[in-house]
Write a protein that binds this DNA or RNA. Sequence first.
DNA 1: TAGATTGTTAATCGATTAACAATC
DNA 2: TAGATTGTTAATCGATTAACAATC
Lengths: 204, 204
Amino acid sequence: MKKIIPRKTIQRLLLYYRYLLFLLQQGTKNISSTSFADILEISAAQLRKDLSYFGKFGTQGAGYDVLALRDEIAKILGIDKERKVCIVGLGNLGLALLGYKGFASLGFVVTAIFDNSPQKIGRKIKGFACYDIKELIPVVKNNKIEIALLTVPSEAAQEVARRMEDAGIKAILNFTPVKLSLSKKIKINNVDLAAELKTLSYFL
Amino acid sequence: MKKIIPRKTIQRLLLYYRYLLFLLQQGTKNISSTSFADILEISAAQLRKDLSYFGKFGTQGAGYDVLALRDEIAKILGIDKERKVCIVGLGNLGLALLGYKGFASLGFVVTAIFDNSPQKIGRKIKGFACYDIKELIPVVKNNKIEIALLTVPSEAAQEVARRMEDAGIKAILNFTPVKLSLSKKIKINNVDLAAELKTLSYFL
DNA sequence: TAGATTGTTAATCGATTAACAATC
DNA sequence: TAGATTGTTAATCGATTAACAATC
C-alpha cells in the first residue's frame, strides 16, 4: 500500500529546508515542532504530519536536531542529486531564469538553451551557447536532459512542447498560459504569472 | 452570511475566461458545461459549481451563451477595471515582467518602476522612467498604486516590502523566496520559481 | 411535449488540525 | 522520575464530485 504524498507536503518540505539552513547559520542546534511551526506560520501538527510521511526524525521530549533534519530533507528532496535542465525560448523570461541563482543551489544544472532567433543562435548568452530550437531533439537526447523550462511565446508553446516530448523530456515547467496537451507520462507544472496577479487583485 | 469563495475557483475563472475568448474566435456561440469541462479537463460539476458562487448564467437544456458568459466572468474578475502596479527591482525578472504583454490585457497598468542602481535610475527602460527606490513612498502615494511586484534580491526583500507597506501598497506579488512579515492587511502572493521546479523534479 | 442541461444538495474525497498515548 | 515533545489516530474542515429535481 503505497502512501500518496501530497504535493503541498513537498512544497512545504522545501520551505522547511530553507529555514533549517537559516537556523543553522544562527547556530540553532535543536528545535521543537512547536517553535519551528511558529516561525513558519503553520501548525505544529502539519509540520509533524509532513515529516511523518517519510519517517521519524525527532526525539520525544527533545524535538529535532537541526543539522540531521536538514540532511534528511535534502535526501528526501534529492537536493544532492543533479538534474539537467534546458531553457527553451530566450525572451526576457528565459533570460531571467537563466540568470537565476536559486536553481543551482537546488541541484539544477542548465545544460542547454534554445531559441529560434538568428541573432541568438550560435552565440554565447551569459556563458551558455545558444542552440537552434530545431536541434532540440538531438541536443536533449545527447545530453540526457530531463527537465525543460518552456518560455516561448504562447503561439509556439504547444508545438515546442510536442517536440520536447519527442526528445524524451520527462518534465516541463510551463510559463506560457497555454494548456499543453501531451502524453500523461510527462509531468507538467504550470506557472501562470498573469493568473497569480489576477488572483491577488481579485481578493483585494 | 457571506459565501467564501475558494481561491482555486478564482484561478479557474481566469482559465474559463481565456477559453471563452478562444471559443468566440472560433465562432462558437453556445456551449454546455459538459463540453466546456471536457476542453478544460475538469469536471462539469466543478465548472457549474464555480459559476454558481456568482449567479446563474446558463439555460437548462441549452447550456451557456459564450459571449454572455465571457462578459459575466470579466465583470466578476474586474477585468474591465484598471489596477495600477509598480515593479520594484529591475533585474532580469523585473525586466521580464515589464515586457510581459499578458498583464495589460487583464487590466494591469505598470505605473512606475524602481531600482537602486545609478545606471538605471532616471533612465527610460522599455519606455518607462526608472525611479530611485528611495522615492518609492511618494511615487506610490502620488500615483495611487495598489499592487507591487517584488523582484529585488532576497537580502533586500523584507526591507523593501516594509517600505511598500508604509507607502500604502495593498497587495504584493512576491518573487523572492523570502517569507515577508508584514501587517495582515496586505495581501501577499508568493511565486517561488525554484520551489515550482523542485516540486516538479520530486515527482519525476 | 420530450430531451437536454442547468443549479444545487448530499456524498465523497483529501488535507489539516486536535488530542493524546508513547517515550525520550 | 517528571516534564516535554514526538508520531499517529481520530475529528474536523474544505473542496470536489455525483446525482437529480427543476426547467428551458
